[in-house]
């Protein structure tokens, strides 16, 4: 009985892997090309910001494209996780728990690059590696909240409780995303708000004018990062589904 189950699950898994191979390959190649093109545009194609005179500050401004791209990816991932968590709480379908977990993992990885690249950009622009500015503080809290999400899941053994507690936590943690987005608009901050109606150029440091080519490069980077996120989600979800199938089969073999 158990052997039949093992074989049928294995066959299903192999069949799904075979049919999904082409989609996975297409997504991976497309996102690889887009990310390399984004790198070219950010480092070479995009013009220098005209108002920045110090060479170090001018070069560092190019961090902007991947810094914002990663931040966009992180915010998108955390919002997807919150939505998937709501869907899990409503439907109790395992699929949404897998989506939430996968999305948080990806978002956390890229939010880490946002914080590190922001700190590196701050040095030539603000002359400090770090300052407890509202945006930077909320970003750190946001990052810690999602580290907490993974720790919470790791601390619970029961899969149902893990999914239920994780969903409630991810939903609550999701509120840090709009708060983070609005931090540079609501409070006095030295972090530039370049994508904002009536930006805060007077208070911010390192702000620069968005010429047409800078805007095009930024838009291209945002698209490239979105495709990159979809690709990573595709692979991470497949991996988590396989992981859960293997765990179920192990349990069946162990307790039969």
């Amino acid at each position: 009985m158990a052997s039949k189950a093992v074989l049928s699950q294995q066959e299903k898994s192999t069949a799904s892997a075979a049919s999904g191979l082409s989609w996975g390959a297409v997504l991976t190649v497309t996102s690889g090309i887009l990310m390399l093109a984004a790198l070219y545009m950010a480092l070479i194609w995009a013009p220098d910001a005209t108002n920045l005179t110090a060479p170090a500050e001018r070069y560092a401004q190019r961090i902007f494209y991947f810094h914002v791209g990663s931040a966009w990816l992180g915010f998108l991932a955390f919002i997807v996780a919150a939505v998937a968590s709501i869907l899990y709480l409503v439907t109790r379908r395992d699929k949404w728990d897998i989506w939430a977990l996968s999305s948080v993992e990806i978002g956390l990885a890229f939010f880490t690059t946002v914080i590190i690249s922001g700190s590196i950009w701050a040095k030539p622009t603000w002359n400090v590696w770090w300052t407890w500015d509202p945006r930077l503080t909320i970003s750190t809290i946001c990052w810690l909240l999602y580290v907490g999400y993974l720790m919470l899941r790791g601390a619970i053994d029961n899969p149902d409780r893990q999914a239920r507690f994780g969903a409630v936590y991810a939903l609550l943690a999701g509120f840090s995303v709009p708060l983070n987005w609005m931090a540079i608009r609501w409070w006095r901050t030295i972090h530039p708000a370049v994508i904002a109606p009536g930006n805060n150029a007077d208070e911010s440091m390192g702000s620069f004018g968005m010429s047409a080519n800078i805007q095009t490069t930024l838009l291209f980077c945002v698209i490239a990062f979105t495709v990159f996120y979809i690709t990573l989600m595709y692979h991470r979800i497949n991996l988590e589904q396989l992981q859960r199938r293997v765990d179920t089969l192990k349990q069946r073999l162990l307790y039969r």
């Binding site: 790198l39 170090a56 070069y59 560092a60 961090i63 810094h67 690249s117 590196i120 030539p124």
Partner: peptide, 9 residues
Amino acid sequence: YLAAAYGVF
């Protein structure tokens, strides 16, 4: 700084 930030990414 530019190289370090992209390197980290």
